[in-house]
Every structure is written in C-alpha cells, then in structure tokens.
C-alpha cells in the first residue's frame, strides 16, 4: 500500500497537482476535507466571507456538506469594514 501511495504521489507531482486545492491562488493540502472543516483551521470569520468554488458561489448553508476535491479552485472573499 505504501508503494502505491508513493507511486500516486509521483504521478501527481509530475502533473503538478498533489492532493491539492487552490485557495486564493495558493496550493493547500485539503482535498477530502469539508469546507467548514477547512475554514475552522483558518482565521476567517464565517460571517464576513463569501466562498466561490470553480466560479460558483457556495451557499452558506452548504459549507458543512461541501467536500473539497483535488483540483478545486477556491476563492475566499473576506470583507473588511468601510463604505
């Protein structure tokens, strides 16, 4: 099993992927996690953000059930005050 994983890692490395999700332009190793589990590891305030995945908004009610998959491009927009 260990060999299999190493082989897969090598292929992914070649493809420039890994088990990576792109969040705001940075590769992050969070494929397989839910969006809410990922957000819990960050400093984002969930009341101040909007999250897009591959160009579509993720409704706030779906953060817990949204599973991030390899190759996803995520944009977290975090608002600051002033207007």
């Amino acid at each position: 099993m260990q060999m299999g994983r190493v082989y897969l890692d090598a292929i992914n490395y070649k493809l420039g992927g890994g088990y990576m999700v792109k969040v705001n332009g940075e590769n992050v190793d969070i494929a397989g996690k839910t969006l809410s589990a990922y957000l819990a590891t960050t400093n984002y305030d969930c009341k101040r953000i909007a999250v897009e995945r591959n160009g579509d908004i993720i409704p706030r009610t779906q953060y817990e059930e949204t599973i991030l998959t390899e190759g996803d491009v995520i944009e977290v927009v975090s608002f600051v005050g002033g207007g």
């Binding site: 101040r48 600051v80 002033g82």
Partner: peptide, 16 residues
C-alpha cells in the same frame, strides 16, 4: 454597505 457582515450577507444572497 459599511459593516463587513452586511457586505458578506448581501454578496452571498445576491450570488445565490
């Protein structure tokens, strides 16, 4: 809008 929570609410709501 002024407050970040209101900005985020409006953005989420409009896009959804």
């Amino acid at each position: 809008l002024d407050e970040p929570e209101a900005k985020a609410m409006l953005t989420n709501r409009v896009l959804e």
